[in-house]
Every structure is written in structure tokens, then in C-alpha cells.
Nucleic acid binder design. Sequence first.
DNA 1: GCAAATTAATGATTTATTCAAG
DNA 2: CTTGAATAAATCATTAATTTGC
Lengths: 162, 162
Amino acid sequence: HSPTGHSRSPPSSSASGSTTSEPVRSRWSPKPEQILILESIFNSGMVNPPKEETVRIRKMLEKFGAVGDANVFYWFQNRRSRSRRRQRQLQAAAAAAAATTNTCDQTMMVSNSLPHHSGSDLGFGGCSTSSNYLFGGSSEVPSFFLSLSSSPPSCSSSSSTS
Amino acid sequence: HSPTGHSRSPPSSSASGSTTSEPVRSRWSPKPEQILILESIFNSGMVNPPKEETVRIRKMLEKFGAVGDANVFYWFQNRRSRSRRRQRQLQAAAAAAAATTNTCDQTMMVSNSLPHHSGSDLGFGGCSTSSNYLFGGSSEVPSFFLSLSSSPPSCSSSSSTS
DNA sequence: GCAAATTAATGATTTATTCAAG
DNA sequence: CTTGAATAAATCATTAATTTGC
């Protein structure tokens, strides 16, 4: 629908890593600034920009290095795909864990005493703020993990006698 | 994929992926529950458990599938590595962006979407709710862009030189 | 310290699925 | 039922980080 007159525009890749002096790059590698921009856009909710926007984004990115419309398109496509996959993986993990939690007898009775942990985890779900969430009070599934006392120096010794 | 050679022989233990119903796997693939557990531990601050804890963790994970101490060790090693890299990349991006922000007038004011938080959120995961106050200039059409699809039917050569 | 070898990330392709016309 | 467009999933291939041995 809406034949926007977009023809088969194969990757008009005009990609180059470093504008300064790079030998030859067969594959576009976004520069930090470009990544930042793309991430910002993605995180702002625009996960699948229409062509018009894609062109605009490309123009914006071009200020920091050669890039083609196709690169931008690919980037968003991959971002969506991978984002979703991770989410699914996590969800599966949660479900599976919840379904099998009871199997773990007294393996770990957790003693939630973690005072705090300089938050700087990153990496996974993204939505996770702390360790206790997700299935905090789902059912009879007590968050049976969390807190394996961090053993900093010597051996395990709950010496956190505050 | 170059399964040709195992040089390092880290902690020796049993490591197999034949947990439930997998044919044969040369490499341990953590089950969702195991991932969840490992993530929880990692996020709880224990990013580098000593051997003692590693063994404990392995025993705990074993309830969900075969796993060896080495696998646990590797997992944490890789996890740390990944975290560090991500962090660095982000910082680099931020720095680079900051360094060039002035250069591009209002080209990229996108930077940080979410207010507050002194740049250390790194919530790239994929939580982005729907905060669209970026540059919703003229996005109306769903999304149409270069087709660059393949040629499934008919002739399409591409003998994959792989 | 550097360069080869390994590993993880991720850009680019291919394949399958979906949905709307015709 | 077929065709065409658009996407998402799966896969391939290359690049960049890390690790390792000299």
C-alpha cells in the first residue's frame, strides 16, 4: 500500500568506519556518536522508523561518519530482533525457574541482607532494577535465590554484624 | 565455529548439556533457570565468586541440568567481561557524543531521553515504554522502506560462497 | 609489548510468516 | 488461491575485543 515510489534500493552502502583514513571496510561500523543517536531514538520508542525518518536519521548520522539508509534500516531491524529475543529468553528463564523452584530443597535459604550494591549491573533485561522483582510475590514461590553473600576476602563468614 | 582445539583445561568437572532432551552438545548451554540463578547472583554483587562459592553455585545449578564448576567459572568470567565492555562502549559513546554535541547545532539533542540520573542507566535492554518526545516530526505511515528482500522464487543464484 | 589465536558482537542476508488486495 | 509488500526469525560473515605465547 501507499506506493511511496520506493524502488529496490539495495544497500547503497557508503560505509566507512573512520573518515580519517581507513583502508577498506566491507561492513559499516557505527561510531560511538552514531550508536548513541541510534540508541536514543530506539529507546524513545521509535523502534521501526518509516522510510522518511530513516532518511532523516541517516542524514543526522552522516555528520559523524559515512552511512547509508540501508545501514540504518539494518540497524533497527537487528535491534528489534535482538531486543525481543533477549526479552523472550528472560521471560522463559523466569517461567522455567518459577516452575521448578520447588525442586531446590534447602539449597539456599537466602538471607536477604544485602545492604546495597552500587547499582551498575546492566546487561540483561534492562527493566530490572534490583534483584527482587519479576516474581516477587507471584504465588508460593519465594524468591529463593538472591543474595549469596558476597564473599569478598576470606571465606564465607556472615560478619555483617551491623 | 571452529571446534578445533581445546587448549585450556580449567577446573575439571563434569560438563554436559544433556539435561533434558538434547541429542549431543559439545558445549554447555545453560538452561533458562540456570541463567536466571546466575544472573541473580551476579546482580547481587557477587561478580567473581571464589572457588568455594563456585562449587556451591554449581551444586545449585545441577538441580536444573548437568553443569560443571568450570562452566560456572567461565560463565562469570564472560559475564564480567561483557559487562565491562558494555560499560566502556557506553562511556565512549557518551564521551564522543559530548565532545561533538556542540559541533552539530541541534542535530542531535536526542542524547538522553530519560531525565534525571547522571548518565549511568544503561538500560538498553528493551524496556523502552513509549516515550516519544524525540522528534516525532512527520511520522505517520507505519513503515515502509527499501524492500531489499531476497529473491526466494525463481532464480536467485547467490551460491553462498560460505 | 606485540602478534597470533580465540571469542563475542553485530552488520548484512536469507527464509518464513503475515496480511491485504485482486 | 495467488500475488505482493513488509517484517520478524534465523543464519551467515566480518569486525572488534580478549586472551595467550613469545
